[in-house]
């Protein structure tokens, strides 16, 4: 009787593994089958010549170039906020904070990490409402607002990876700072941060990946279907994930649908490269300390 139960369990484990693999393969396979053929110059630039599009001399109407650039700007601007703040917080939590401060600020970081992205978007939206009612009646959703909300969304990733990477440094390396006559800050800058850099980098890349893929935040904070190239921080913009979402519901021609699949492939390539890089870095970082 027991043997049968064991067998069933083993069978179920194999089945689950197989199903998930099948699902992932189907997902990617379906995307490839429907989208691969459409990945070409016109996917990105439409009818516009690529040189004109890249240099911004001519607008792109059909292609996803503006959306790609929008996503890129979004990732860059949000990283500009989230990376320095995140690393600084991680350093503080790992190296300076007392036990109590670490627990209470850590709790805030956890709460932030648990905030659903749509709520973060709603926060941005509410912020604009508030600004309109008070200081700036003409305030509106924009790239800057979206980037700020995205930065808050990914901030916990950067903080936590920085903190764990620093805390994982073994005592025999940690003690070298004081032994070499370095002050606390000098030890952090010249020993601890370089040693932890790989772990921190993986967190940064992870955060960029999350920033590139998130749709719900930008949905409420300034993304639109037709904005052209991002023109400034205070303007609305296009983004890849939103374009995919938009095309799923609003495609009118077969060509647009194919473009949706191709766009998905492009975004998938972008994010999975980022995530796998982060994963590899993380794994190598962990392996390094197992030697000791």
């Amino acid at each position: 009787m027991k043997k049968i139960a064991d067998r069933c369990l083993v069978g179920f484990a194999w089945l689950s593994a197989g199903m998930v693999t099948l699902a992932a393969v189907m997902l990617v396979g379906f995307l490839l089958r429907r989208g691969l053929a459409s990945i070409d110059g016109s996917l990105f630039f439409g009818e516009t010549h690529w040189l004109d599009a890249v240099s911004g001399r001519a607008p792109v109407f059909e292609g996803i170039w503006p959306a790609l650039m929008g996503t890129l700007y979004l990732v860059l601007v949000s990283s500009f906020v989230s990376i320095p703040v995140g690393i600084a917080s991680g350093v503080y939590l790992a190296e300076y904070a007392s036990k109590r401060v670490r627990a209470s600020l850590g709790c805030a970081v956890d709460l932030l990490a648990g905030t659903p992205s749509i709520v973060m978007g709603l926060f941005g939206f509410a912020l604009i409402l508030l600004l309109r009612r008070t200081l700036f009646p003409q305030a509106g959703t924009s790239l800057a607002l979206a980037a700020l909300c995205i930065a808050l969304l990914v901030l916990p990733y950067v903080i936590r990876t920085t903190q764990t990477a620093l805390q994982a440094i073994p005592v025999h390396l940690r003690i070298l700072g004081p032994v070499c006559g370095l002050s606390g800050l000098q030890a952090i800058v010249h020993i601890l941060l370089p040693v932890a850099s790989r772990g921190i980098l993986s967190g940064v890349i992870l955060a960029m990946g999350r920033a590139a893929e998130d749709t719900a935040v930008i949905l409420l904070t300034g993304v639109v279907a037709q904005a052209g190239m991002p023109r400034g921080l205070w303007e609305r913009f296009e983004a890849l994930p939103f374009r995919i979402y938009y095309l799923a519901a609003e495609h009118q021609t077969r060509r647009q649908l194919d473009q949706g699949f191709a766009t998905s492939l492009v975004l998938l390539l972008l994010t999975s490269t980022l995530f796998l890089t982060a994963f590899m870095l993380q794994r190598r970082f962990e392996k390094r300390w197992k030697k000791w």
Binding site: H172, L173, L176, C180, G181, S183, P194
Partner: peptide, 30 residues
């Protein structure tokens, strides 16, 4: 101050504790 004291009173450990950098950087960074 502590950093200065520890420079004047140097210490070497049981297991060789080199920094995970180059030989040169181990010497020059401090």
């Amino acid at each position: 101050p502590l950093p200065e004291l520890r420079r004047r009173v140097a210490m070497v450990f049981q297991t060789p504790a080199v920094l995970p950098f180059s030989i040169e950087k181990n010497m020059t960074m401090p």
